[in-house]
Amino acid sequence: MNTCRESMIHYMHAYLDGDISRDEERELKEHLAVCPSCKEMMDELQSAVSFLQFAEPVKAPEGFVSGVMDRLPKEKPKAGIHRLLRRHPLIAAAAMFIILMSATLFSSYNNQQFSVTKQPNLVIEGETVVVPAGETVKGDIVVKNGNIRIEGEVDGDVTVINGSKYMASTAIVTGKSEEIDKAFDWLWYKIKSTVKGLLPTSDTGKDGDSHTDSE
């Protein structure tokens, strides 16, 4: 052991890594020429690493590729959707919108309260709305979670959600009349009316005189 070793060992490794400056390399070479113990160490280092480079390339065994393919997890449709969502944020946003939208819609569907569009000459008997004989109701009527009995005339649409409609022989409905009692019908109705509300309508005045009221 001599005092020169510490920095020279560092130079030797730097040299083997091709990470040495010209000056350092010259210094190393000059030193090796006069220091047999450092020369020996350098030779040993070089032969150790060059020995490794005799290693023959090793090849993967036969059937390696098919072995990998057999081990791959079978693509789950769910995973596919996850990936789709991750890669297409717009689809994710749209999906989120639909989920929230239907959640709101369904929660209002589940609202079991009886309600009816307030019109001046409607008569309410418990959960049944009556259009009295000889009277004319101007405007649309929407009944939720209740029934309607029409004996008179309705100048507009009649919609019954979660309930039934009785028409007396004297009944006249000028608009459309429909009964909705299934969630999907209801959803469709809600979407239709939302879209209708968004589109500019020519007869805006018609909606003006009716508003929904809960009991």
Partner: peptide, 10 residues
Amino acid sequence: VTMFQHRLYQ
């Protein structure tokens, strides 16, 4: 897999 099998196995 075919492209990289030998290097990775090695």
